[in-house]
Design a protein around this nucleic acid. Structure first.
Length: 191
DNA sequence: CACACGATGCGCT
DNA sequence: GCGCATCGTGTGG
């Protein structure tokens, strides 16, 4: 069982593919020499769709990291009090990132804001290279659970796109969708 | 410079 | 289910 950070090749792929691939892997955070590992059980994909910070390919100082190389962290601040952490996907120049929404194996890490609070993730980590193993990284992991595919949470635009994925039965999932759990996950194009 | 509004979470009804 | 805290960011004047 490798305990090394996943490398660039893992992250450099279409956003929806990376979203699925991240399920079951481990989000790792080192604070004062102590490493905490949360199993990723819920994610959402954002590219240049209407709900994304990169809608219409619009590039701003805040979202620039989403246009950069895959395998970096995009951390943003919202509602005046919450941080959310994303993993950048796609080839350099193409915007895309996966929002981490829930972790197993760490108490209170269900929900994107809550997991950032529990792991002390804030904008100081925005833009860091997740392949470098410096404070925040991701390790490989597998899962046997069924993958549930459904719509994203808390958005108004493009609310119909089924770009949220989670592992059935995981306690770290922030919000379940019983209807989606009754159907097998579909395959959806990445652009 | 002013202003509207969130990829949320929590407490109360 | 609903209201609201609280402020960085984007947009328009």
């Amino acid at each position: 069982m490798s305990a090394r950070p996943l490398g660039r090749r893992f992250f450099t792929r279409p956003t929806l593919d990376l979203a699925r691939a991240l399920l079951g892997s481990w989000l790792c955070r080192e604070i004062d020499g102590e490493v905490r590992r949360g199993r990723i059980v819920e994610v959402e994909a954002y590219t240049h769709d209407a709900a994304s910070h990169c809608r219409e390919h619009r590039r701003t100082p805040r979202n620039a990291i989403m246009f950069g190389r895959a395998g970096h962290a995009y951390v943003y601040f919202t509602y005046g009090m919450h941080h959310c952490v994303n993993v950048v996907a796609e080839r350099d120049g193409e915007p895309g990132a996966v929002l981490i929404r829930g972790l197993d194996a760490i108490a209170g890490a269900n929900g994107p804001g809550r997991l950032c609070r529990v792991l002390a993730i804030d904008r100081a980590l925005d833009g860091i290279d997740l392949t470098a193993g410096e404070g925040l990284w991701i390790e490989a992991g597998r899962h046997r659970e069924a993958v549930v595919q459904t719509t994203r949470v808390g958005i108004r635009q493009a609310a119909d796109l089924p770009w949220r994925f989670y592992l059935a039965g995981s306690p770290g999932v922030s919000r379940r969708d019983p209807a989606a759990e009754a159907a097998p996950a579909r395959r959806v194009g990445s652009r």
